Amino acid sequence: MSDASFDSTSAAVTPGDAGFSDYFALLKPRVMSLVVFTAFVGLLAAPGSVHPVVGLAAILFIALGAGASGALNMWWDADIDRVMKRTRGRPVPSGRVTPGEAFGFGMTLSVMAVVMLALASNFVAAGLLAFTIFFYVVIYSMFLKRSTPQNIVIGGAAGAFPPMIGWAVATGGVAPESLLMFALIFMWTPPHFWALALFMKGDYESAGVPMLTVTHGRRATRAHILVYTILLAPVAVGAAFTSLGGPVYLATAIVLNVLFLRQAVAVWRRDEATAAADGYRGEKKMFGLSLTYLFAHFGAILVQQALAPLGLGLGGW
């Protein structure tokens, strides 16, 4: 791994001198919150019912699996995390947690999460969770992230599996609706991360990560964001006409996709001089909006499922 210097705040840290907060940070709690939420929506949107205790246990083990992925990602990426301003304060590059500790922590949680999910629900859900961890750590972190500007496009599958896992907990299988939730996250991931890459290009360049902004430049990245946003819209709106949706979801999806597409067009039209002069404010707005976009879509699915017994779901069209 790289021997890049630590920043001044981490230089005085004793290696391995970690506390609870450091191990919690290894779990990438912000990413975990998205995983938990989308898995929860997948669980509740599925047909049939799950005992509350089983459902809560399943969500807990899915969260542990997501956290395990985060810890293993930080173990593997410690060298580039040291270089990037956004990540150099993380537990491993700062020296508070040793690479060996992060690896052991991540592997232990991975095995525990998969085994316990299999015992609590079924082997399909556990198998999907195991594959998700493998995909994120091995396929994305170890291979795609450092080898191709399509890292985010292909790697986005890792973050798209949680609602499928939640659905499988309830049904023991996969269905078109769970695949549609997968597709929604999968298509959302590139514009979300490329918006971040537009104003964090220097970090990725310094770390040698072949993000699209580094390999093809910001102009090409802006065009890619627009294309993927256009392709995302029919997937998102189309879910309204399945058992996932209904009038509430449809209204939410239309508003959000109009706003998201409008911002993508605005980002595409910006030249570099203007963007740099205002600190990439438009790009940061696109990134922030993308977070609201995904949470709101899955929140609308959740609301729509709650309204279904009142005749306001798909059957109420």
Rank of each mutant, 00 (worst) to 15 (best):
P29T: 10
L314A: 01
S147A: 14
G89F: 03
F186I: 01
L231V: 11
R262G: 15
A45C: 07
P29N: 06
P93M: 08
G100A: 11
W188G: 07
A4R: 08
G16S: 11
M187F: 14
T229V: 04
V153P: 11
I165K: 11
P190E: 02
Y249I: 07
D7K: 00
G208T: 02
E177R: 09
A175S: 11
R262D: 13
L144N: 11
L26K: 06
A300E: 01
K145Y: 01
L43E: 04
G159S: 11
L198Q: 04
H216K: 15
A160V: 12
L129S: 08
E101F: 02
K285D: 14
S8W: 00
F260N: 10
T221P: 08
V235Q: 10
L231H: 00
G282H: 06
L60H: 08
R222G: 05
F287T: 09
L184H: 08
A66E: 03
D278F: 01
A120I: 10
V31E: 09
Y140W: 02
A18I: 05
R281Y: 10
G89W: 01
V174D: 03
G127H: 08
L27T: 15
F186E: 02
L27I: 13
T9G: 14
F295Y: 14
G100Y: 07
R96K: 14
V248Q: 04
L232P: 06
S121N: 06
R262Q: 14
Y204D: 09
M74C: 14
A239W: 00
A157T: 02
Y228A: 12
I225W: 07
F61C: 15
F161L: 15
F186A: 05
F105K: 07
P176W: 04
L44I: 13
P234A: 10
A11K: 15
A175V: 01
L129T: 08
T87H: 09
L256W: 00
G89L: 10
A273Q: 14
N73P: 12
T9M: 10
M74D: 12
P309M: 13
L27Y: 02
R269L: 15
H51C: 02
R96L: 06
Y293R: 05
V169Y: 03
K28G: 11
G245Q: 00
A296S: 15
I165R: 12
G104R: 06
M286W: 00
A130D: 09
D7N: 12
G159F: 06
V54Q: 14
V83R: 13
V255Y: 01
L180G: 04
P191V: 12
E101V: 10
V13F: 06
S33V: 10
L56F: 10
I59N: 01
M112I: 15
A170H: 04
L43F: 05
H216R: 15
P93F: 09
S110F: 13
F123S: 13
A45P: 03
G67F: 02
F37L: 14
L44R: 12
A273P: 05
A63Y: 04
L179P: 07
